[in-house]
Every structure is written in structure tokens, then in C-alpha cells.
Design a protein around this nucleic acid. Sequence first.
DNA 1: AGATAACCGGAACGATTCGGTCTGATTTGC
DNA 2: GCAAATCAGACCGAATCGTTCCGGTTATCT
Lengths: 146, 146
Amino acid sequence: MRLSSMADYAVVTMSAAARHCGGHRVSAQQLADETGLPAPTVQKLVSKLSAAGLLKAVRGAHGGLKLARPAAAITLADIVEAVEGPIALTPCSDHGRHDCTLESACTVRPHWPAVDAALRGALAGIPLTQLSRPAATAALGAEVMA
Amino acid sequence: MRLSSMADYAVVTMSAAARHCGGHRVSAQQLADETGLPAPTVQKLVSKLSAAGLLKAVRGAHGGLKLARPAAAITLADIVEAVEGPIALTPCSDHGRHDCTLESACTVRPHWPAVDAALRGALAGIPLTQLSRPAATAALGAEVMA
DNA sequence: AGATAACCGGAACGATTCGGTCTGATTTGC
DNA sequence: GCAAATCAGACCGAATCGTTCCGGTTATCT
């Protein structure tokens, strides 16, 4: 139930990138300085994030990163899926492989897709713009918990 | 974003135990046979589950396991928390330790508790009774996604 | 009372994944 | 044409996770 460190770092990195939304590009090194993360780690992250279409990378001298979409159109679910792949709590959900020993008799497997969808929905409700702001701990989650 | 195998097995085990709700106790070995899981693994799981108050264990000859509560009062969140501890996507959430390098300047950390609560809410909405039934893939999650 | 059956806790081993570092390929600017 | 700065992929060590084994405790049956 724990997010991988890479996904955690990706959220921090994207949040830092969103703060530079004002046009001019940012280098991966600069993002590393701002976030305090190791530079090679940030480089690895931006590779995955740009491959997923969340960041736009321009190479060469004076290159750098830029958000591919407005920050409001990028959610936590997008970032997590970009780094960790499809959101699925169990291996049963994402591919047809049932290595389960009881295959057909398993009564819980049919319910995992619904759980995954609920989880993904909770993450998709949090845009990047919200993570860049400094405060407001509440107001979210209450609606889902009820 | 993947559930640990132990938590996955715990759900299967609890679901199998729920099918024996009719009074008489079940041995851990019998649960292992029904689920196809290794017997030592099931034993380790029932230890944690009974310590968490989800299963009631009676020792001695003709002993066995029994649900400590009605199946309707046990949710996915209970089982996951019993095996994996508190539901928290990041280490920032559950204890005061901030090993983050930027501590005070981190703008995303205040938002993690809300995300955790939303996630836990999604899992708490699924009772054990629902997992024992054979079908009905949909009907859940739609409300949370909206 | 002895023996059996079942649960309980800790410790050690092996495998897999994760996180971090390094080197190479590509593009732009002068 | 050269050089600087960037992204992109491959390698490696380390930590965690999952599994198995062992001895101990408790209550029932003979």
C-alpha cells in the first residue's frame, strides 16, 4: 500500500516543474537543486515523464523541460501511472495471467477491477495545481469517505 | 501502487474463512488447502489477523479460527491495515520523521493525508460479504470516480 | 496424567525488485 | 565545424519482501 519512492519523487519533481509554468524551460539539474533530489534520479524521472507525455523535453544547448499540458490537466493518477505503470492492486487485474492456484474458484478476483477503478478515481481527482499550493489539508477525501 | 502479496493472500484467506461463517471452526491447514496457499504462509497470516482482532483463534485440540466479527463489519481496509500497517502512500504521512531534504519547503506533503484518507475510504467501502459472492464486477467505484 | 492436535512466535535463507550511478547518443548555438 | 548542454538507455549494488523451518504453548481426548 506504499507508493514507490520513484513515484513519490516524480510527484515532487512535477510539482517543482509546475511552479515554472511561466514559459521558459527548466533543466533537470535545476529541478534537482530545487527539490534536493539526486540529479541522476531526476534525469531518470524526466525521461519516463516525457515518454508518458507529461513533460515536453527539448534537447541541445539551452534546452530543458516544460509541462506538456496545463497543470490543471495533470492529475496524481497520471504521474503515478507514468512511473509505475497501470494502477492495479494485484497482478490478477492488469493482464490475463492467472498464476493463482485456484483460478476459476477465486471469488475475490472479479472484484479487483472495481477496487482499482475506485482507487484510480481518488487519485485522478487531485490536479497538479492543487499540489503546488502551500496549504489546505482538508476539503478532499471527506466526500469519498462518506 | 501494488498491494503486497501478503495482503493479497490475506484477503483470499479471509474470504475463505467467511465462507465458513456457520459456527464451526476452521483450521489454518484447511484454509491453506481451500485457497491453495502454502500452509506456513497461512499460519503467519492468521497470526497477524487474529492479533488485529479480525479472527478469533482457539487453541488446543479441535481448535481453529473463526471470524471475530460478522463478515459485513469487516472491510478491505481492515484486512490491509492488519497486514501492512496504517494506510499511507508516503513515509511522510504516518510518522513525524521528515527525511525529506527540503522539509519545510515541500508543498506536496500537506496533501498526502487527504490522499491517504480518500484511498482508505475507497477500501473501507468494500465489506467482506461482497468479496465472497461470485459475481457483480461493476456497481462500485463509479460513485467514487464521479 | 500422558499424548495428541492445533495455534503462536521468532529466526534464517533465497529471490526479486528497487534505487542509484555511470556512460553513450542527440541536438542546438556559436 | 566545433563544442556545450541536454536527454536516453544500460549496468550494478543494496535493501526489502516472501518463504520456509523450528521450537514453544495451550487445551482436549483417552
